[in-house]
Design a protein around this nucleic acid. Sequence first.
RNA 1: GGGGUCGUAGCUCAGUUUGGUUAGAGCACCUGCCUGUCACGCAGGGGGUCGCGAGUUCGAGUCUCGUCGACCCCGCCA
Length: 594
Amino acid sequence: MSFKQRTHTCGELRTSHIGNYITLNGWIDRVRDLGGVLFIDMRDRYGKTQIVFNPQKCSSEVYELAKELRSEFVVSVSGNVEKRPEGTENSDLPTGEIDVIISSLEILNRSLTPPFSISEEDGTNEETRLKYRYLDLRRDAVQKNLLMRHKMYQVTRNYFSENNFIEVETPVLMKSTPEGARDYLVPSRVHHGKFYALPQSPQTYKQILMVAGFDRYFQIVKCFRDEDLRADRQPEFTQIDVEISFPDEELVYKIVEGCMTRLYKEVLNVEIPSPFPRMSYHDAMEKYGSDKPDLRFDLQLTNVTDVVKDSPFRLFAENVAKGGAVAGMKISNGNEIGRNQIDGYTDFMKKLGAGGLIWGRVVGDKIESPTEKHITQEYFQKIAKKMNCVDGDLILLASGSWINTFSWLGTLRLEIARKRNLIPASAGWDETQMKFLWVTEFPMFEFNEEEKRFVAMHHPFTSPSMEDVHFLDSEPNKARARAYDLVLNGNEIAGGSIRIHSSELQSKVFSLLGIGEEEAKRKFGFMLDAFKYGAPPHGGIAFGFDRIAMLMSGSKSIRDVIAFPKTTSAMSLMDEAPSEVDEKQLKELHIRVI
RNA sequence: GGGGUCGUAGCUCAGUUUGGUUAGAGCACCUGCCUGUCACGCAGGGGGUCGCGAGUUCGAGUCUCGUCGACCCCGCCA
């Protein structure tokens, strides 16, 4: 098909172009047929321009053809740019001072009536939008997000390149690793019964690159995890993967802060203050009940274990005696919260697995509570004092193991914040609402109840703090890791660690994780071997690129910043992946569906 | 694996509480009229497996059970 190449885009014509004969290629956005004259908004990714078919200014053939135009037809039009008549300018459009009076029209393609409007935001449900993703992607909001994402790639590559990092691609078909998330597996045709795994992250490769002397590596890379999805979790997602030789934590922080600052400045023209504040994992848990606290609102927690350890309330005393924790959340002016709502919070806690929720109101200098006769006024007063309560506050208390008590309250904290509208409307571009935080001093290990063993909290290559190394032999649960997460408004947007670079220490950590010598050799032998040939101290971090894009665009889900996302059941509604395959394909792969 | 919200016209939704005539509205679509609109306007028209399947009932969009799908959360996500 031959058609006239465009001379301009639909976003660029101004009064300076008046008098020019121009050609536009694009889509029909909206048709306004006034009986005589026909006004049409024409759209491409650069903007919209009003084109005009006037039967007195074009041939009757062109005019008759123009009357066939409908939304989403693809056309090539040519005509003269003219100034709009006095009083008919449209100040909402950058091109609103001119019209293009069309003399030539070619319909390049017709369109069915689209299932939802491209030009109008009508709240079409996500299911429909994902099925017709090619139409959804025409919408202005989605185009803006992907354009912003493109800028993020550019800024990221420039920033790391300028700082001596080199981009290296690592394999997508790799060895399955036993730790961490469930792997996506790819069967090997050549090797019967053997499988590749898609990378959960290029972790081992980037460490090997450090051994190889590349010194500073980065990659914008897809990672895959076969776990259940969330608004901020897709089975395949993008990381900015970074590794540095001869680092300490301060160097990593500095490089990351530099990257975030550049991204916000160059993509959104927002100055974010740095360095970012820091908080230990322990403090984050005890103050906010989360290892990724949202600091945009208060509602802090207080550990009252010491206060209640010898209280007459047996639930508390016994829990403390067996090593548990009791903690409280203070809701300032919470007296307006009715009994119904508190009962709702109690149900919420029970669904999380908590025994319940104990509460009291500060009224004058008394605490009023249905549990008062058990806890006693005396101990309630002590609790209130520890929590710095004043008249009108509502106290919510939970009791259980340390991790559960604070996690439950942390989850409740977010729920209450949502219910009470304490979280500012998502404004990813407002620097006063950007609460960055480094969370540091994570434990090396956490105990997995299901498997009855320690698992690495970050990953098995994370170095313990030098001062905690001695705990590895005595009390591994007390050892802290040289790991760090970057948190923004309650979202984990980057996480990393200083790695182990000694073959011996790495073997010891593997054994603590229940990975025997034999298994370690089989799964990670190449890495342990590599460490025997002069591995430099190294460490790094990986950014959740989609999450950063989500926050910077003010989106509620990473699906809004991914061109072709999957649903919460990991389906792609447009192309219907995953799908069944031919028997022939299975045979070649030596696989049978059972 | 568990909890919750939702599913009615192409799209957004009302109707479901308390079962009862032919299931409605706006937008979109089609036809006609209309020469300065920009959410054009006016008149008329077409369009429904009430997600799907059982059950209760004289009668089910409405009640019950099951099931499928989307979304949110817990578990899970080194």
